[in-house]
Design a protein around this nucleic acid. Structure first.
Lengths: 128, 128
DNA sequence: TTAATCCTTAAAGTCGACTTTAAGGCAAGG
DNA sequence: CCTTGCCTTAAAGTCGACTTTAAGGATTAA
């Protein structure tokens, strides 16, 4: 189970350019090449890439993903540090959740307000 | 109840620069000035600003807020359009919520994984 | 009177995360 | 043989949302 960049990109629903950019930024450190220098993504690479995509949707900075990669290279002794990075991001995610909850209340209010204006406006403009 | 920019900025927890920038970008169209040309934020301005801040935390684009302002200037007949903009953003918010829910699952898994490595690592390094 | 602290405007700079452009290599199909 | 479509690299450009810098005006406190 190994894939060229186009297949990998399709699997994670990103442009190939972005995958190359991620590799360049140190997020994909173990990507092998075929005899022509083309990238080959194996199952492991894809799993990591999927986690990247999933966490990027919650706006984890590339720098934090890169930091995890660097720590991974240093071996098992860095597991606690890697965990810490993720815990910190999880806190941010929880804050976002709260921000969303607050915004839902406010946006519903405002939508209701616009509804009222709309109703009034139509009532006032009835011809008979 | 009216405030100069510094007080207003403190109330919504933004730098004064950002409030000026927002006005310049057409997000705060009704801000009055005192005899020296200083901005005066009234209760209404603050309420709108608070909504801006609340929705910005969910990444509503400035362009959408500006669009609402422009429609508001055109009067009550545009209430439906303004509502539509907010409904559309509410959809995005719901998608973010789903993204967060998915990411929570994955990040907990990964944290658990790092926990395992950590435990193993400490076990292997016991001297006796 | 001078320093501090507010305010003003306009313009330039920054940042993260891509995205686009340019120039070119390799392999298969017609 | 040539086009098509994949791949490569390096570098430049874009985008949104600020943020910083520069230059200066008005009010207050020492």
């Amino acid at each position: 189970m190994a894939f060229y960049i186009k297949e990998a990109a399709e699997k994670v629903n990103l442009p190939t350019h972005t995958l190359r950019y991620y590799e360049q930024e140190g997020l994909l450190p173990f990507i092998k090449r075929d005899e022509n220098g083309n990238r080959i993504f194996d199952e492991n690479d894809l799993l990591w890439l999927e986690l990247i995509v999933c966490l990027r949707k919650t706006d984890i900075p590339l720098a934090e993903l890169r930091a995890i990669v660097e720590l991974t290279k240093e071996g098992d002794s860095t597991a606690a540090k890697r965990k810490q990075i993720l815990e910190k991001h999880k806190e941010k995610m929880m804050e976002k959740q709260r921000d969303l909850d607050n915004a839902f209340i406010k946006i519903k209010e405002k939508i209701g307000f616009y509804d009222e204006i709309e109703k009034k406006y139509h009532k006032e403009n009835l011809s008979f």
